[in-house]
């Protein structure tokens, strides 16, 4: 039953990915036309040379021909080569995707691990000052621009301590130290700030959500029954209520799975994180068509897979969900 569902979803996903690639292709062409980076902007080259190079890249063909050719290659697993450095797009992706996933997965985990206790405490102490404080912070948290938060943290955690204490508390850019680093502890130190910024918005929303979810569960009949049976409050909360309160949170987390690849773009740019988002941004500005096409299509495929995973997750966790 599950397999049939999955297969059907996968099949339905293909036109989606194709649609994405088509849109991206059309957009890139509308903006750049037949521009070849590094070639078209070298005014000393004769027209003949430029035309020859355009022909080599196939840019003199009508756009639907180019798209068709590109599609043919994709089906064979060939995402093409970058027009700027000639490296295979798949290699570029492989170089950077792990970094992005490291960042986004960590951020999501951080957000979940903080949201749950915050939301539960808020719910249990509903109406008190603790609750109000936490809720206010959550609501405020969503209103802060991400890049600004990142820049402020860099100042607070790296620059100012360096000036007063002689060294930054945490590094301000990159995934590893530029010299002598690379060990897990070093990577962790570099991960903390960007992951925190990324997690910040998530946890602002999720902690409130957990709170309302917890409140909902606590008012359910079975909880009242458990209390009436004389079960200790702790057991009521941790054994029964919590588990059920967390399930809907999974739904929300699932909504974020598709954003795993691109969600961290701003954070990646602010912190110089060597991920896919930042890379796509730089290459889009440089008109490296092939790379941008490859990256966007790949990201879309991941989004679709992410959606699928999310659906499967709900299905596994909540047997009440039916598939249509």
């Amino acid at each position: 039953m599950l397999w049939k569902y999955l297969v059907r979803r996968l099949v339905a996903a293909i036109p989606v990915v194709l649609g994405v690639s088509l849109i991206t292709f059309v957009l890139m062409h509308a903006t750049g036309g037949d521009y070849v980076p590094g070639i078209s902007d070298d005014p000393r080259l004769s027209k003949a040379t430029v035309d020859a190079l355009r022909h080599e890249y196939g840019l003199d063909q009508p756009w639907w021909v180019q798209y068709g050719l590109w599609l043919w290659n994709i089906i064979h697993g060939d995402f093409g080569r970058s027009m700027i450095d000639g490296t295979r797009v798949t290699v570029h992706i492989a170089d950077r995707l792990p970094n992005t996933l490291e960042l986004t997965v960590t951020a999501i985990l951080m957000a979940v691990l903080i949201s749950i206790p915050v939301g539960v405490v808020s719910a249990l102490r509903r109406g008190t000052r603790v609750d109000n404080a936490l809720t206010t912070m959550s609501v405020a948290g969503v209103a802060v621009p991400e890049f600004w938060l990142g820049l402020m943290l860099i100042l607070l955690v790296a620059v100012i301590p360096a000036q007063h204490l002689g060294a930054p508390l945490l590094p301000s850019s990159g995934a590893t130290s530029s010299f002598g680093g690379g060990d897990p502890l070093d990577r962790l130190a570099h991960l903390i700030l960007p992951a925190t910024v990324l997690a910040f918005t998530y946890l602002s929303i999720w902690s409130r959500f957990t709170r309302s979810s917890m409140l909902e569960v606590l008012s359910q009949d079975y909880v009242r029954t458990a209390r009436a049976k004389g079960m200790g409050e702790r057991r009521v909360v941790y054994q029964h209520a919590l588990r059920n309160a967390v399930i809907p949170l999974v739904t929300l987390v699932g909504l974020e799975l598709p954003g795993l690849v691109s969600g961290g773009l701003i954070v990646e740019v602010v912190f110089g994180w060597p991920g896919i988002g930042r890379f796509a941004y730089e290459r889009a500005l440089a008109f490296d068509y092939t790379t941008v096409m490859g990256l966007t299509t790949f990201a879309a495929a991941l989004v679709v897979v992410g959606n699928l995973l999310a659906d499967v997750l709900y299905a596994v966790l909540d047997p009440r969900i039916r598939y249509t």
Binding site: L151, I154, L155, A158, V159, A162, Q163, A167, P168, P171, S172, S173, G174, S178, F179, V269, V270, F271, G272
Partner: peptide, 23 residues
């Protein structure tokens, strides 16, 4: 022994990292 050329996000980051000693 070594020379490192590190890519830094922008001009503000260059100034920051000079101060923190990262570059």
């Amino acid at each position: 022994d070594s020379y490192v050329m590190k890519t830094v996000p922008d001009g503000v980051a260059i100034a920051n990292q000079l101060k923190t000693g990262e570059i």
